[in-house]
């Protein structure tokens, strides 16, 4: 089922080779939400056949680990294995609501497309993502707005549970910034769409103890877009 790993296919077509150009780029990521944190962000420039995720496809194991627990180790290793240029964890930890992180990349060879992922906290398996954006060859500053995705790998029960960042363990591993509610009964036990899709948002409730959700309905919601990316091609 989880066989849709990052595509390792590297076409050696003449077209791909003709655009092999190194570029220096700055990448700035702004968390546009009011109450959602981003876990360590992974930025990668890679060949145009590779994807960290694709809507309508099942998540890879690495994507699941990132979306459920915030670990970018597996996805970083996959990027390394295809000679991608990566910028890992530019925020040096969590990126708080309405704040920015920045870093630089030098792209090599055929690494002409840019992808970005980071888990959104507190969610079960929500992440902010950019899938294969073509890096312009012309110098300039470019803006991209990102949506919130659901990896489709875990039911959105909205219960904060220690240790639930491990893939397959239901629950939200942490609620930074604001103590979560407790003893929620759980919103749901199933996930209807098991492919990567647009996140339907957190629901939350207004009960500190009990209710269905451990999240707060006046704090932990968002609407797309959830991030702004500014790419400067030098």
């Amino acid at each position: 089922m989880k066989a849709k790993l990052l595509s390792l296919v590297c076409t050696s077509s003449l077209l791909a080779m003709s655009v092999a150009q190194a570029a220096d780029i700055d990448v700035k990521i702004t968390n546009l939400t009011q109450g959602i944190y981003f876990t360590p962000i992974l930025v990668g420039a890679h060949n145009s056949d590779a994807h960290l995720f694709q809507t309508g496809q099942t998540a890879s194991d690495g994507l699941q680990a990132m979306a459920e627990g915030g670990s970018i180790d597996a996805l970083s290793a996959t990027l390394d294995s295809i000679n991608a240029n990566t910028l890992a964890n530019p925020a040096a930890g969590l990126l708080a609501p309405a704040s920015s992180a920045m870093g630089s990349l030098t792209t090599t060879q055929d690494n002409t497309t840019l992808s970005i992922v980071a888990m959104m906290l507190p969610t079960n398996d929500g992440f902010v993502g950019l899938d294969g954006w073509e890096i312009p060859t012309e110098a300039g500053t470019y803006h991209i707005y990102l949506n919130a995705y659901d990896a489709g790998t875990e039911a959105n029960n909205e219960l904060v549970v220690d240790g639930s960042g491990a893939p397959g363990t239901p629950g939200i591993p942490a609620s930074p910034g604001m103590a979560p509610g407790t003893q929620g009964s759980g919103l749901t036990t199933t996930e209807s769409n098991m492919m990567v899709h647009i996140h339907r948002g957190n629901v939350g409730d207004d009960e500190a103890v009990g209710g269905k959700s451990d999240l707060h309905n006046t704090v932990h919601r968002w609407l797309n877009p959830v991030a702004k990316v500014t790419v400067t091609v030098k």
């Binding site: 809507t55 309508g56 949506n147 919130a148 959105n156 919103l187 749901t188 199933t190 209807s192 647009i198 996140h199 339907r200 948002g201 629901v203 609407l223 797309n224």
Partner: peptide
């Protein structure tokens, strides 16, 4: 409807 039926934009790619 339940929380499962909620949605945010965009709807289709």
């Amino acid at each position: 409807l339940t929380s499962a039926h909620k949605f945010d934009n965009p709807l289709m790619a």
